[in-house]
């Protein structure tokens, strides 16, 4: 076989694999645009008929999607702010020094990264209810999620800070900057891309979070879209076009961000997991 032909065949096989793998996403969008009768057609209709855009309008109204999306957004922004404010400085110091204390701190952060939220939510809920935090459920949820995202963020950002050459910072100090000045004027701007991607990943986690929100937020006016979707799903198991329209509304912003920033996101995530 000639190299050019092998190349073509490999490309074809790769595209086929990707198509099979991504079929669930295709199926989500196609189902969301079908009529009630064509979702239950046997055999299933793999190609969309006339797109039923009004499915989206209806479900937005019926399931209160704008309100749920707003709450998801509020939670995601809160989580990103708290995680970023507390986490970036810590990541920077962990990247700058090497000694026993730093190793111990890094070890603690790595270990905290693995705690399952579904297990941590029990003590957090009991503790929060004593502290009166359950009166501010969205804020309480943000606090709980941030404890989960912060270790992840610190590990990712540490990798970003390691790429900033130490000499630049030392030069700034020689030029009369304070440590704080050098950090804010030199190091932060240079590590900006890594920090932004890490923050975006934290934002996505906050936006899609389920366990803490489901356990802490009882008032449905404050619940995020993940809860809104399960609430709608339980009694409406036949309206799959509506459910898929809800799902599509929820994930399309995330998928769009992913498509735009694919390379950076992948680099960021792999840096965090293995370094």
């Amino acid at each position: 076989m000639s190299p050019a032909l092998t190349n073509r065949l490999m490309l074809l096989a790769a595209l086929l694999l990707a198509a099979v793998y991504l079929f669930p996403l295709y199926w989500m969008y196609v189902t969301s645009l079908k009529t009630q009768s064509s979702i239950f057609a046997v055999p299933p209709e793999f190609l969309p008929g006339v797109p039923q855009w009004e499915n989206y309008a209806t479900i937005w109204e019926v399931a209160n999607i704008p309100r749920f999306m707003w709450n998801s957004l509020v939670i995601a922004v809160g989580v990103t702010l708290i995680t970023g404010l507390f986490g970036s400085g810590c990541a920077y110091v962990l990247a700058r020094y090497r000694n026993g204390w730093i190793d111990a701190a890094l070890f603690a952060v790595l270990m905290l990264q693995v705690l399952p939220p579904s297990l941590m939510v029990t003590p957090i809920f009991v503790g929060f209810s004593w502290a009166g935090l359950l009166d501010y459920p969205r804020f309480a949820t943000v606090l709980a999620i941030s404890a989960k995202t912060m270790p992840f963020f610190v590990i990712l950002c540490r990798a970003a800070f390691m790429t900033v050459p130490r000499e630049l910072e030392e030069a700034a100090l020689v030029d009369g900057n304070s440590r704080a000045g050098a950090f804010f004027m030199i190091v932060l701007p240079l590590a900006r891309n890594g920090l932004l991607i890490s923050a975006l990943l934290v934002f996505m986690q906050g936006f899609g979070e389920y366990v803490y929100s489901a356990s802490i937020i009882a008032d449905n006016r404050l619940q995020p879209a993940s809860i809104g979707m399960t609430n709608y799903l339980q009694p409406n198991q036949v309206n799959w076009n509506a459910i898929m329209a809800f799902a599509a509304t929820y994930v399309t912003p995330i998928l769009a961000a992913f498509v735009l920033l694919q390379r950076q996101i992948v680099n960021g995530l792999t840096a965090g997991a293995l370094k």
Partner: peptide
């Protein structure tokens, strides 16, 4: 798939 919320 990996960036999608688990619930979705």
């Amino acid at each position: 798939a990996w960036v999608m919320p688990g619930l979705v």
